[in-house]
Simulated scan of single mutants.
Amino acid sequence: MGNSDKNMAMAARRVSWMSEDLVMFQDTVRRFVERELVPNEARWAERGYIDREVWNRAGEVGLLCASIPEEYGGGGGNFAHEAVICNEMARAIATSLGNGVHSGIVAHYLLNYGIEAQKRNWLPQMASGAMVAAIAMSEPGAGSDLKSVRTRAVREKTQNGDIYRINGAKTFITNGYHADLVCVVAKTDPDAGTKGVSLIMVETRDQPGFRRGRILEKIGQKGQDTAELFFDDVCVPVENLLGDEEGKGFYQLMQQLPQERMIIALGAVASMQRAIELTTDYVRERQVFGKPLIDMQNTRFKLAECKTEATIAATFVDDCMVRLLKGELDAPTAAMAKWWCSQKNCEIIDECLQLHGGYGYMLEYPIARMYANARVSKIYGGSNEIMKELVARTL
């Protein structure tokens, strides 16, 4: 074990919510990431999507639905297991496997709001990798403002039973290229405001009227497929409604968003810590004016600032994790964690890139890829401006 690995293991044990079992799980995750993801990231980034069979291999080693009960095929853990996976992938700069959406988001919508038949049908397939899941919120004209979605789901009676006929377009959908199961945010009553929003599960295989648009070309996280999805008279049974009645979609979204935003905050903390480690190693080796760059006071001061802010972020997120695991994390605090950590991640990576000089602008250096990957974290999961508005409402 190298010094970096030793430091990571020691740090893991100092985190209050980590246990010995989680440290063992962390080792399993790290080995999978290093073996299956890291060597392929460049290839996936070039074409814009991950190999489909990687999902199956992730399921085999227990990385999918790790926080879902065993009775539904999951790992039987809790959100701490998802946090470990998120941390390891962020530290390894392995962004292509969209497990945060699959396991950390969609699986928990099903677990918390799905009827028993839905949970027993879809969760085991998600846990094994037989199904890849996505959530379709954003539209060309509606991003953070979920009340403005235009996708419609109209209930109709047919000879084969009641159905929802879905029409609309979604964009920026993570896992959209591979998605076999999509949680669609749609209006079931367009005149009811937030009470007219529902979540409807759509199986995409051989589904008439469903089609995938182009894989969107991004400035970062290039290997994580992000696609457009189109629903043209897509018909699904009314039993695919998530929950026991229509109009609860907005409430369901709001209830789950703190956990979703914690995934972003966790990834940001792991990323800023990794950026500091990489940069510290670099400035020890880089010679400027005949001496190591680390000997320059500005270099040491900049890294001291970065380490201080990263430590503050980690301390705050660890406290949030403890609260979340107790069921006590409120939405405004999760919003604080999301916006502040994503903002600081971008700032710290920028400072670290600067210390790399011209090499920091070259994609062969990890810091350059981290710079591009980090930027979207201030946008997705609710833009940071929306996060600040949520916090401001509590003043």
Rank of each mutant, 00 (worst) to 15 (best):
K248H: 12
I135N: 03
V15R: 04
A334F: 05
G243C: 05
A42Q: 12
E309L: 07
I166E: 04
A392P: 02
W340M: 10
V202N: 09
V376N: 07
I349M: 02
V202D: 03
T158A: 06
S148Y: 05
E88T: 03
R369Y: 00
R155V: 09
D5G: 02
L395W: 09
Q207C: 08
I215A: 06
M89N: 10
G381Y: 04
A130E: 15
K119D: 01
H178Y: 06
V236A: 00
Y109W: 02
W44S: 08
W17Y: 15
H108A: 07
E41G: 11
M296G: 04
T226L: 11
V132S: 01
C306V: 05
P124Q: 02
I348T: 09
Q255D: 14
Y49N: 12
N298H: 10
D225N: 15
P237V: 05
I367L: 02
L181F: 02
T280G: 05
A130H: 01
V33Q: 04
S383R: 09
D5R: 11
L266K: 12
A83W: 12
A313F: 03
T394I: 10
T311S: 15
T194D: 13
R286M: 09
L324N: 10
S19Y: 04
P258E: 07
V29I: 08
V376D: 08
L395T: 04
A153K: 01
W340R: 15
L181V: 07
F32Q: 09
K307T: 14
M10N: 11
A142C: 09
Y359N: 12
G176F: 02
G168D: 03
S144G: 10
S342G: 01
Q221Y: 03
A392M: 12
S138A: 15
M89T: 11
K344M: 11
H178N: 14
D51I: 05
T204Y: 03
V317M: 09
E46N: 13
M8Q: 09
R323T: 10
R214I: 10
N175G: 00
L242V: 02
D225V: 05
K326I: 04
S383N: 13
